[in-house]
Design a protein around this nucleic acid. Sequence first.
DNA 1: CACACAAATTGATCTAGATCATGGATATAA
DNA 2: TTATATCCATGATCTAGATCAATTTGTGTG
Lengths: 248, 248
Amino acid sequence: MAQSNNVTPLFNDLAKIEHDHVACQDCSLYRLCLPLGLHNNDLTKLDEIITRSQNYKRGQSLFSEENSFKSLYVVRSGSFKTTISTSNGREQVTGFYFPGEFIGLDAIHHELYQSTAKALESSSVCELPYDRLQEIGKEMPQLQIQLLTRLSKELAGDKSLMLLLGKKTSKEKLATYLLSLSKRFHDRGFSATEFQLSMSRGDIANHLGLAVETVSRIFSRFQDEGLISLDGKAISLQEMDRLKALCG
Amino acid sequence: MAQSNNVTPLFNDLAKIEHDHVACQDCSLYRLCLPLGLHNNDLTKLDEIITRSQNYKRGQSLFSEENSFKSLYVVRSGSFKTTISTSNGREQVTGFYFPGEFIGLDAIHHELYQSTAKALESSSVCELPYDRLQEIGKEMPQLQIQLLTRLSKELAGDKSLMLLLGKKTSKEKLATYLLSLSKRFHDRGFSATEFQLSMSRGDIANHLGLAVETVSRIFSRFQDEGLISLDGKAISLQEMDRLKALCG
DNA sequence: CACACAAATTGATCTAGATCATGGATATAA
DNA sequence: TTATATCCATGATCTAGATCAATTTGTGTG
């Protein structure tokens, strides 16, 4: 059966991508993205250094661990995951990224990317070459502040994730995760209760420090209890309040 | 028995703190800290906005979750831990901070601190009021870049910690932790193999997502195997290579 | 210096969630 | 369309590390 269309679509349509060169001014992600608060002149300068990428297909890499760091990326449409690995090959999904969110911020201090970024579905990005960004940033304090704010936000998110990984039970982890997704969809103008999970159960499990089987079981349990309703990748949060209460 | 003196002292003596107003130029932490790369004029301006704090005693808070965000702090001497909590009171130690390291970076995007910072021993800090920092930052791109770099570095560290929390066994966690401490001591000009653990076993356990008892047992095991030698808070890493191999 | 309290160690037991195993559902490709 | 690989769900079993319990050691404080 084909995926039904009664839920929020994946993020493919969020940015206007008919033309490859939508200016930041005209981008529907404007208020979620870096340019917020920049004046027209500055915005134009920023526009000039941005490369709008071709599409990335599901599974395709934006960059890999140990590649040399060159650019930051902002998701324009679709979604990505980032991973890092131990020397003996175990992998941790460190984050999921949706339109308007930055990828690569953890590489700024380094010559090399610290993680691998892969598309979860057909996706596109804006590429910001870091050296040129620094150049124009010298005359745009507001841009620097935006960048700092971005980094700080991601940092705070990662600390919460540490709390989740270190101290929460499997149910609490899943409930917290679903509500975090919900909020991000809502912030992007979509339904807070009905959306598509672009990542696999395996990715979710890995990200939350669980086994796939555990995620499956808890999803089933949540369904039995009427908390959510799940049809493949389409999820609907039926009882936000009870979910919130489950977050710990 | 009193603590023996044959190991690296705690960080109390690292910064020259006889006078409350050591200029950044003269501070022994200079090369680890923010001012790196600033010119003399800029350095003087930075100096002017910094408040050097009185001492914080063991257990004393620098700030608490939900306090309004005002300043960033750099550890001058001693050490701190930061924690965040779930709504029902469970707590996660999100980080330990040593001289030259920044505390509060995750609050920049917010009105409120996202965590609580407590001294682990007698400690002191430099306080950087964030609004004034932004003010002078407008004319000091190098300062902004330093800040960005700091944030990025902490971000990368947190991602590694996610890998640790999500994918490593208890032994691997402890080995990884000890080597991370070792590196940070070494970077500060101290022995990479002999130092004092200023944090309790409980703090370590919490930070690594383990129970205290587990940490105790693994420390004992590591001792039996000749990997480390432990006397209260004083630790000596006897076999760095084997420890490295244990990190996963 | 001795009291009281907090931190650490060690052993015994228990359990949340991992791992193993199987079958069904989905997706991709020729 | 069928082949083939991957993903997902669910049951049975196992185990790493948590929890509980009892000492021991360390550490402020009057």
